[in-house]
Design a protein around this nucleic acid. Structure first.
Lengths: 170, 170
DNA sequence: GCCACATTGTGAGTATACTGTCAATTAAAT
DNA sequence: ATTTAATTGACAGTATACTCACAATGTGGC
């Protein structure tokens, strides 16, 4: 007869799971971002969107979602909030009546350059508890892992280069 | 005169930020969990709650939130959903009329033992792209980082041991 | 014993993050 | 050229994740 004794469930089933650790670390990252940047009315996602619109003026929502790997539906709300804060404007495209092109406003460019030091401080604080060498190691492994798992995510990241082509041909 | 040329903003301000990488990895982790466990109607958070109620029968919502470091308000909804699925029951405590004690139902215990292999598969898939040695390194650094940053998170984790005392004295 | 304080669960409100679906529009197939 | 496909932005619905606030309850100071 097989050993039918069930394996006892322990909290290790949670605490040692990489998924749990990634969730915790994400929560910590957001908390540190909000704390360092509380002088600015910007969330981490809104910051990423703002940076991308800054480096890709005239990008549309679908392409923006691909460049930062955020869900398209979610991004719709993010864009609305950024627009409500007067950090971006949406202009209809001449060639394609479906798309709305995104541009930074002066206020958007201003808040972006002002918030940068605080963002850097928050990012540094996340890794601060580790030794410098360990920070580099973790960042390197994490970068690899995100890249290698790209297709596993619901909204894979499509690099900026790839988008140039996607824009016209497909 | 100082060099007033503004630093040009690049996508590195997003792509190399640890916070962005943690967000991406969390999204990937959830996507893999959902994919592997789609036969079971359980989210990662619901799974963690179920495991904890299993190992701490009669725990209350506040203590549960401390043990898995999830927000108390969020957990209220999670508990409601678990109860709606008949995986847990809530019983009023005799000594304290405010608290409601949480217990697994038979169905809850059943789904928990059944889902375990799929959860393990999902957790393994997350790190699969890395070499075994790198997986160990990443997991070790991540565990350290979450632990060392514990107080930075909005809902710091309070270990099970600490809760025994908290339960009575304060 | 009473009063200030803390705790518990709950609710409202905001922001991600995903699933669908849908109409309008464009592109592709033939 | 007309039917078919795909794309775009929008919306509804669900699930985290946080904020603040509130009533009910419990506890400690005195």
């Amino acid at each position: 007869m097989p050993n039918s004794k069930p394996t006892p469930v322990t909290m290790d089933a949670v605490y040692t799971a990489p998924g749990y650790l990634f969730r915790r670390m994400q929560q910590i990252a957001v908390a540190l971002f909000i704390e360092e940047c509380k002088a600015f009315d910007l969330t981490p996602v809104q910051y990423a969107a703002l940076v991308t619109i800054s480096t890709h003026p005239g990008i549309d929502a679908t392409r923006l979602s691909a460049v930062i790997a955020f869900d398209r539906s979610t991004l719709g709300n993010v864009i609305e909030r950024l627009q409500a804060k007067d950090y971006i404007v949406r202009k209809p495209a001449a060639e394609d009546k479906r798309v709305k092109l995104l541009y930074l406003t002066k206020a958007g460019a201003g808040v972006l350059s002002e918030i940068m030091p605080s963002v850097d401080k928050a990012q540094a604080r996340m890794l601060q508890p580790l030794k410098p060498a360990d920070r580099k190691t973790l960042l390197s492994l994490l970068t690899q892992l995100v890249d290698l798992n790209n297709e596993a995510s619901r909204v894979p990241l499509r690099a900026e280069d790839a988008l140039e082509h996607l824009g016209r041909s497909g």
